[in-house]
Design a protein around this nucleic acid. Structure first.
Lengths: 135, 135
DNA sequence: ATAAGGTTTCCAGTGACTGGAAGGTCAAGA
DNA sequence: TCTTGACCTTCCAGTCACTGGAAACCTTAT
């Protein structure tokens, strides 16, 4: 199976698959013409990667998860630790974004949005509390 | 006022302020020794930038907002449009993250996290629905 | 023979910083 | 006066996870 078909099946752009090979996440064989040939196992890996990326895991997390996925003697605690840490990061990002949304939606609501210069949004930014914690 | 004091007041790292000068967001004067000298107006701009960044606006949005902030003849509709578009992006990100969280927290909950290899998280990734839309 | 479409590699750019090296400047203390 | 340490300067490289584009090679159909 060539790269564009593999891309189709895995739900990833071909460019991304080449990149994943570059950084050692997959190592498809090569045909005599130099084209990549994807096996069923390669496809499983790519699909796994596409889905773990869609859950927001970093590439390095994906690398670790993939190794555990292929290791039949893994401990599920190793998987759970990675997932739980990532879950915490997601929760933190949600909190940050919800705080932004609450502030911003109030400012947008208060702004008349006409051709006059008076603007509660600019005033709100000017007088806002300092930035929260860093993401 | 030198850069580290300005950084203190604005709530930004000095490195970031230099970067903002690089990309033309602020243009502090220079002392005879080459040191940057920040005026009260520079400080207002930096504070405005720190706060709009903390609300998640992109640098280019901040550039536009800063121009409107300084333009006494602006129309508040221009500000509101930028803010409302950003608000939509934030809402979309929140939706994505909440979907990730819901999936992931269920998987983490289901995983025993012991030393056995059986793992609902890996199974869940393997059998998940395809990725949602791109962020 | 040619055209269209797939594939290869490699290089550069994205956003918004951040780290680090190498060197100039300043104020205080011995 | 000299030295120390804390500032400040510029410039270059790296981050993350791709993405775009160029130039060239391969395959298939007409």
């Amino acid at each position: 199976m060539n790269i564009s078909e593999a891309a189709q099946h895995a739900g990833l752009p071909a460019k991304t698959i080449r990149y994943y090979e570059d950084i050692g996440l997959v190592t498809p064989n090569r045909d005599t013409n130099g084209y990549r040939v994807f096996s069923a196992q390669d496809l499983h890996k790519l699909t796994f990667l596409a889905r773990s990326r869609a859950l927001g895991f970093s590439i390095e997390d994906c690398r670790a998860l993939l190794a555990l996925y292929e290791d039949q003697t893994r401990a599920s605690s190793d998987v759970k630790r990675i997932a739980a840490e990532h879950l915490d990061e997601i929760e933190a990002k949600i909190s940050d974004l919800v705080a932004m949304r609450d502030t911003l939606s109030e400012l947008v609501r208060a702004c008349s949005g006409d051709d006059r210069p008076d603007c509660p949004i600019l005033k709100g930014i000017e007088h806002a509390k300092g930035p929260a914690r860093k993401p």
